[in-house]
């Protein structure tokens, strides 16, 4: 940082000066190149493809068709809109349960107790499992004829359920799997937020005679709000993009009736089964815009709650 008065300007000195003057670009360059090559380029390419009628092979000649793919997707009541609705149904229901359940578990784990370490490790286990393996495992558990879930129900003299095999119960079953796998992450985030809270407000409320519920609602929760919003943000983006457990349990097209087809699964089918790269790209761009819009709304809430 020291500014030296150059007496003899060697080549190294010249380079050093130049680097010094441009250091903000120089140090940021690797990250910028990375973003350019691995994020901006694919996005721009997808955007370009979405405006063409590319199909069959992306190397084959394609024509510029303007916004036709977008109009086709937006006017598609058979697959696109139901897939969009399912994406949101899946995300919102999973998110709601995960937040409530995650909060309860985090509050239970907040205060130190015996065997705390073991309990924490046990709770985090689903998180470290590979999603595809998780999908395969639950697929076996939920098998309507030989699966463990129905054996268990029968043991208690309850009727067998179709689980993943019926159009009505497939999506809720997968929401359950998502909750099983991702609640630990919510717990982790909320627990980190809880441990950083100071004790004083809680104590003050206790002295004023507030009961546990009142202390949680009026003291802990408002203080924890920034953390809660981070958890909601991370979890909702992830849930919107869920692909692995859906594909591993129901396969192409989200089942024979497209019963668990979300936008991701739909776009995957469009490109890899139907080879309609133009339409697939348009769906993905629309999906991207939806996610950006959700993020925008949530971060605005966060700024609002911070001020």
């Amino acid at each position: 940082m020291a500014v030296l008065t150059p007496t003899r300007k060697s080549a190294w000195q010249a380079y050093s000066d130049w680097a010094n003057a441009h250091r903000k670009w120089l140090f940021a360059a690797p990250a910028m190149i990375f973003v350019g090559v691995l994020i901006a380029f694919p996005l721009a390419w997808t955007l370009y493809l979405s405006l063409t009628d590319a199909h069959g092979s992306v190397r084959a000649a394609s024509h510029f068709v303007g916004f036709r793919n977008y109009l086709q997707a937006l006017g598609d009541m058979d697959r696109f809109w139901p897939a969009t609705a399912r994406t949101f149904a899946f995300t919102l229901s999973a998110l709601a349960v995960e937040m409530v359940l995650g909060m309860c578990i985090a509050l239970l784990l907040w205060r130190p107790f015996r065997g705390e370490k073991w309990v924490r490790v046990a709770i985090l286990l689903p998180l470290v499992a590979t999603p595809v393996a998780v999908g395969m495992m639950w697929r076996l558990i939920f098998d309507p004829n030989i699966g463990f879930a129905n054996q268990l129900l029968n043991f208690f003299h309850l009727p067998s359920q179709p689980w993943l095999s019926s159009t009505e119960t497939a999506l809720p079953t997968l929401v359950f799997v998502d909750i099983w796998q991702w609640t630990p992450m919510v717990v982790l985030i909320l627990l980190a937020g809880l441990t950083s809270l100071s004790e004083e407000p809680d104590e003050a409320a206790r002295i004023d005679g507030a009961n546990a519920w009142q202390r949680f609602i009026y003291v802990t929760l408002p203080l924890l709000m920034p953390t809660v919003i981070v958890a909601v943000l991370l979890r909702s983006i992830d849930a919107l993009k869920t692909f692995d457990i859906l594909y591993a349990t129901k396969g192409k097209g989200g089942g024979s009736f497209n019963e668990v087809e979300t936008l991701n699964v739909y776009a995957y089918g469009l490109s890899f089964d139907y080879n309609k790269y133009g339409l697939a790209s348009a769906v993905l761009i629309l999906f991207f815009l939806i996610i950006v819009a959700c993020m925008f709304l949530l971060t605005r809430r966060r700024k609002g709650s911070n001020s």
């Binding site: 098998d143 309507p144 004829n145 030989i146 067998s160 359920q161 179709p162 993943l164 095999s165 019926s166 129901k250 396969g251 089942g255 024979s256 009736f257």
Partner: peptide, 22 residues
């Protein structure tokens, strides 16, 4: 067919039902 039959079966699933004796 089997009770609660799934509409996602390809040959591995159908074959499993047959080879399990069901």
């Amino acid at each position: 067919g089997p009770k609660n039959v799934s509409t996602d079966m390809s040959w591995p699933e159908a074959m499993a039902i047959f080879t399990q004796g069901n």
